[in-house]
């Protein structure tokens, strides 16, 4: 699903992470929770607590991302 060199950044308010796949030149957004004030186009797959089980505070391996189907692709 992703190239091995995908970049991942945690957003500081813990609302989610953003990923960039340089091989496909695609950006993906992943929301942690569904408590946004606006209707979001992203389904709420996991809470941040659940996420931290997998990744700790910041990041983890992409294998986990893929195998747990955490990533909701968002095409530009």
């Amino acid at each position: 699903m992703f190239a091995a060199s995908v970049e991942m950044r945690l957003l500081t308010d813990n609302s989610g992470i953003v990923l960039f796949d340089p091989f496909l030149n695609q950006t993906h957004l992943l929301r942690f929770t569904s408590d946004a004030n606006h209707a979001s186009r992203f389904p709420p797959p996991f809470t941040s607590d659940e996420f931290s089980v997998f990744f700790g505070a910041e990041s983890g391996t992409l294998d986990v991302l893929v195998s747990k189907k955490l990533v909701i692709p968002f095409e530009h």
């Binding site: 957003l11 609302s15 004030n37």
Partner: peptide
């Protein structure tokens, strides 16, 4: 007033 979280902000900038 509504606070907009960073993921929404990123999405808005991106689009």
């Amino acid at each position: 007033l509504y606070a907009v979280d960073k993921l929404q902000t990123f999405e808005s900038f991106y689009t």
